[in-house]
Design a protein around this nucleic acid. Structure first.
Length: 274
DNA sequence: ATGACAAAGCTTCTTTGA
């Protein structure tokens, strides 16, 4: 299976690039975040022409998550039990079973600043997500939780840790929330960067951050050993952040299990050595 | 070159993002 996750920052604004990327990369399953797409407006016909079925969850102007699959899309679930809201639950989680793998696409609340109700909301959301994933794990099925976690797991995952002191995305409480997810039995499938030592997935649009490679690793793939153990390669598709009209996030592409009908990996991205 | 924010809508500003 070729699995990808991408915060597209509006599926409507990104549609030409998304379609071209799908045609080039041909993932089996794609988790999208920040679709920013009102109910009923998801371009299901356009991605359908490329062979993808769609499960999407939206709440209008902000947020929005989706799963595209060309290997089955069963038992779709929107949100999760007791999901916290602000104050109402937002469109931040969707899950489905694709070729025997339970796949989640999540968009963790930003948190804004630590001294903020948005930050408390973020921590509460992650804590209840943990309970929901614990329930999923009891099925014994392979599980992959992909998305924009809005947390940089370590200081190496931001371009300048000193600049982030006192900011969200790096606080001990946020990092502990990720550690609590991993403690369920989920492994961090760390992708290979295309450039530089850090597998950043996000670069601010402003001030030439991308060209200076001043990024963050906040998009993550957490997977059970039953999936992670079969991973042959994982990389950040930095090419998708280039050029005119990109998202501010790059996709992560993971190949796991049996080889499928996919284009070869970009040059220099050898399969994971294990 | 990869180039100096972007997207949405209650659109000519405000909110949000991280």
């Amino acid at each position: 299976m070729r699995l990808a996750t991408w915060n597209v920052n509006s599926v409507k604004a990104r549609l030409p690039r998304l379609l071209a990327w799908l045609a080039d990369t041909r993932p089996d399953v794609v988790c999208l975040q920040e679709t920013k797409c009102p109910d009923g407006a998801f371009p299901v016909d356009e991605v359908g022409e490329l062979g993808y079925s769609v499960a999407s969850h939206s709440d209008g102007r902000w947020n929005g998550v989706a799963i595209l699959s060309r290997v089955g899309l069963d038992d779709v679930a929107v949100g999760f039990a007791d999901e916290p809201g602000f104050p109402e639950p937002e469109a931040r989680a969707i899950s489905a079973t694709c070729a025997g793998v339970r796949v989640w696409s999540i968009y963790v609340p930003n948190g804004r600043i630590p001294d903020s109700p948005h930050y408390e909301y973020k921590l509460a959301w992650l804590a209840v997500l943990r309970d929901a994933l614990a329930a999923e794990l009891r099925t014994g099925r392979p599980l992959v939780v992909c998305g924009d976690y809005n947390v940089a797991p370590t200081d190496a995952d931001v371009w300048d840790p000193a600049l982030f002191v006192g900011s969200t995305h790096v606080t001990p409480a946020e990092r502990q929330a990720l550690a609590d997810l991993r403690a369920l039995g989920l492994a961090d499938v760390v992708p290979t960067p295309m450039k530089g030592p850090h597998p950043f997935t996000y670069w601010d649009y402003r001030a030439g951050m991308f060209h200076q490679n001043k990024g963050m690793r906040i998009d993550l793939v957490y997977a059970t050993a039953s999936f992670a153990g079969d991973v042959r390669s994982a990389y950040v598709d930095r090419e998708a952040r280039k050029g005119k009209g990109p998202s501010d996030h790059a996709p992560i592409v993971v190949d796991a299990g049996a080889d499928g009908d996919h284009p070869p990996l970009p040059e220099g991205l050898d399969p994971v050595r294990r």
